[in-house]
């Protein structure tokens, strides 16, 4: 069945088209300078635990990108089973491909740049990051895969999109990429990682934009979905803030209060842009921020 005219003109299809236009290859990001710099940063900035802080960031991105790669497939299935539209399915398929690339980038970076220092980097995961990024995301994804009641499936789909694109991508991932990119740019460190962050953040902007449109559409069709969005954020916000708070160091590369501000701002913008909060300025700020990717 061909795409309908509405589907071909939809925001979802436009985001899918941008995904093709802005495609990149994680294997092509040049990390040779990073390999030399990693040892130098470790030697020259050991007093502020610079590589420990960088390792924590990389560990969370590595585990987080693996988690979002392995949990997204049921979303594509749910889009088909709820008749969300071929345009929605196509976008989610493009996102699944992109999440795999993000994981590939971090996996490659860990192996080629971090090397032996990556041993034991799982120690950064237990607690809020493990809960919100991995366990809870896997749990809602599994519920989405199994749910066969049409009404419950729609509600679970909204919950899953809120968790994935709202909580994990808008609040955590884009906050992390923004803070880390700023910290590295300021110091002129790790240009390959900077470039990876830039490209991934651009993709994530598209994913967040998808989430906002999906939630706005779902809530416009059925007002009861608003409560599901609200409950989902309410459930996961403590773990989001706990994850941000885990970056407290005596000499932080990224200021935690600033990170926290980014995360809270991302939440306000997501809710406003989805039409669930009365803040036109926040919604407009997000539109401008996502402009590059959407």
């Amino acid at each position: 069945m061909p795409l309908t005219r509405d589907q071909a003109a939809s925001k979802y299809f436009q985001l899918y088209a941008n995904s093709k236009r802005l495609a990149w290859d994680p294997a092509s990001v040049d990390v040779r300078a990073d390999i030399a710099q990693w040892s130098r940063i470790k030697a020259e900035h050991g007093d502020i635990d610079a590589t420990t802080q960088l390792l924590q960031l990389i560990a969370l991105f590595h585990a987080g990108e693996e988690s979002v790669t392995t949990t997204l497939a049921p979303y594509v299935g749910a889009a088909a089973r709820t008749n969300a539209g071929l345009d929605v399915e196509m976008f989610l398929a493009s996102q699944l491909y992109e999440e795999a690339k993000h994981f590939e980038f971090f996996d490659r970076y860990v192996k080629e740049v971090v090397g032996p220092d990556a041993a034991g980097m799982d120690r950064f995961l237990p607690g809020p990051p493990q809960q919100v990024l991995i366990d809870d995301l896997a749990e809602v994804s599994e519920r989405l895969r199994r749910e066969d009641d049409p009404v419950l499936l729609r509600a679970t789909f909204v919950e899953a999109i809120t968790h994935y694109m709202g909580v994990v991508e808008a609040m955590l991932a884009r906050t992390g990429y923004r803070g880390a990119h700023e910290a590295l740019t300021l110091r002129g460190w790790l240009p390959g990682l900077q470039e990876g962050f830039r490209l991934i953040r651009r993709d994530e902007g598209r994913h967040v934009a998808f989430g906002i449109h999906f939630i706005a559409d779902a809530c416009a069709r059925d007002e009861s979905m608003r409560a599901i969005v609200q409950r989902t954020f309410e459930r996961h916000l403590p773990n989001v803030l706990g994850t941000v708070a885990s970056f407290v160091y005596p000499h932080p590369l990224v200021d935690v209060e600033q990170l926290q501000g980014y995360a809270i701002g991302a939440y306000q913008q997501f809710m406003a842009a989805a039409g669930l909060a009365d803040d036109a300025a926040a919604a407009q700020a997000l539109v401008l921020e996502l402009d590059e990717s959407v």
């Binding site: 309410e234 916000l237 803030l241 706990g242 708070a245 407290v248 939440y267 306000q268």
Partner: peptide, 16 residues
């Protein structure tokens, strides 16, 4: 967020 102040209520509302 650091748990030094115990908060009860809707965190979603507070953060908005």
């Amino acid at each position: 967020t650091m748990g030094q102040v115990k908060f009860t209520g809707a965190l979603t509302t507070l953060l908005l």
